Computed example of a mutant assay.
Amino acid sequence: MSSSATGHEPWETTENAADAAPNPADVNVPPTGDTARDSAGTEGISAINTTARDAAAKAESAREGADEAAERARAAADEATERTRNAADEARAAATTSVATPTADTAAATAPAAGAVPAAGVVTPAAVTDTGAGGETVPMHEMTLGMAVTSGPGRFFFGLARILLGWVFFWAFLDKLFGLGYATESANSWINGGSPTSGYLNGVDGPFASFFNSMAGQAWADWLFMIGLAGIGLALILGIGVWLAALTGTVLLVFMWMASLPMTQNPFLDEHLVYAVVLLGLAFVRGGDTLGLGKPWARSGLVRALPFLR
C-alpha cells in the first residue's frame, strides 16, 4: 500500500475536499413550512387588494355610465314633453281656426252617403264652426262665452237663481210703473206722472249725496232706470242676453250700493253687491242654458253676428 512521504497527505486531501464543498446556508433550499405559509399569505393579500382595486374601478365606471344614461333619459323626457306641449298648442290653434263654409257643390261632393256612419275620431266642420243666416262662418269658441255647468242639479239651481234674480228686477219695474202699493203707491206710479227716481235719489245722504240728488226726477234718469229694470229682468227670466244683462245689472247695482252708503247694519256689504256677484257668476257659467232660452238664442243669426249678446 502506497502512502505519502510525510504521512499527512490523506488528511490534507480530506480537509481540502471539505473546504471545497459548498456551504448549505448558501444553497437555495426549499422554504420550510412557516416560510411557505408567510409567502402564500402575502401573495393572497396582494391578490385580494388587486381584485378590490379592479372591482372599485369597475364600480366607478358603472356609476359614471349610469349617470350618463340618466342624463340622456332626462334629456329625452324633456324633449318629449316639449314636443307634446307644442303638439297641444298646435291642436288648440287648429281647433280655433275658422273653417270656410263649403259651397253647395262642395257640400254635395263631400256629403256622406245615406246611412253612412262617420269614421271614429273624424270631426265634421259643423263641430268646429257654425254659420249664420247669410252663410258667414263663426268660430265656435266665440259662441261659447263662459263654461257650461255639467252637473244636472247644478244647472237647475243656477237656472233657478237666474229666474229669481230676474224677478227682483222686473218686479221693481212693474211696481214703479203701475204703483202696485208695495214700494210705490198708485199716485206716485210712473203712468200717473210720478218719477221712479225722485223719491229714492232725493233721500240719499251719504258720501255721494250731491251726485245722486242732482239726478233725482230727471227724465233721462227715469227712462234709463226703468228701461234697465225691465230689460235686465226680462233677459234673466228668459235666459237670453245674460252676458249683457249681467254687465248692465252690475253697473246698476253698484250705483244703488253707492246710494245706500253709509250702511247701518254692515260696514260695507248689502244685498246689492251680493246680487252683482251672482249676476256675473251666472254669465260665466252660461246660466241661461237651463230653464231658459239660452241655447236657441245662441243659434240665432243676431247672436252669431254679435256673440257678446249670448
Rank of each mutant, 00 (worst) to 15 (best):
T6R: 15
H8Q: 13
E12N: 13
T14K: 13
A18H: 11
D19Y: 11
D19H: 13
P22S: 12
G33I: 12
A36G: 11
S39L: 05
G41W: 14
T42W: 04
E43H: 07
G44T: 12
S46R: 12
N49D: 12
R53C: 09
R63W: 04
R63P: 11
R83F: 00
T84L: 11
T84V: 12
R85D: 08
N86L: 14
A91R: 12
R92M: 02
A94P: 00
T97K: 08
T101M: 06
P102W: 05
P102S: 05
A108H: 03
A120E: 15
P139E: 00
M143V: 02
G146E: 03
S151C: 09
G152R: 11
P153M: 06
R155I: 00
I163G: 13
W167K: 03
F169D: 09
K176V: 05
G179Y: 00
G179L: 01
E185A: 11
S186I: 01
S189I: 01
T197A: 03
Y200Q: 06
N202K: 09
N213A: 04
Q218C: 00
F225M: 14
M226Y: 10
I227C: 09
G228L: 11
L234I: 10
A235H: 11
L238A: 10
L244N: 10
A246E: 00
T248W: 14
T248R: 03
G249Q: 15
G249E: 02
L252H: 07
L253D: 12
F255D: 13
M256A: 15
W257Y: 00
M258R: 02
A259W: 00
P262T: 08
P262H: 09
M263A: 13
N266C: 04
E271C: 05
A276I: 03
A283Q: 02
F284I: 10
T290M: 07
G292Y: 05
L293Q: 03
R299K: 14
S300G: 09
L302T: 15
R304F: 06
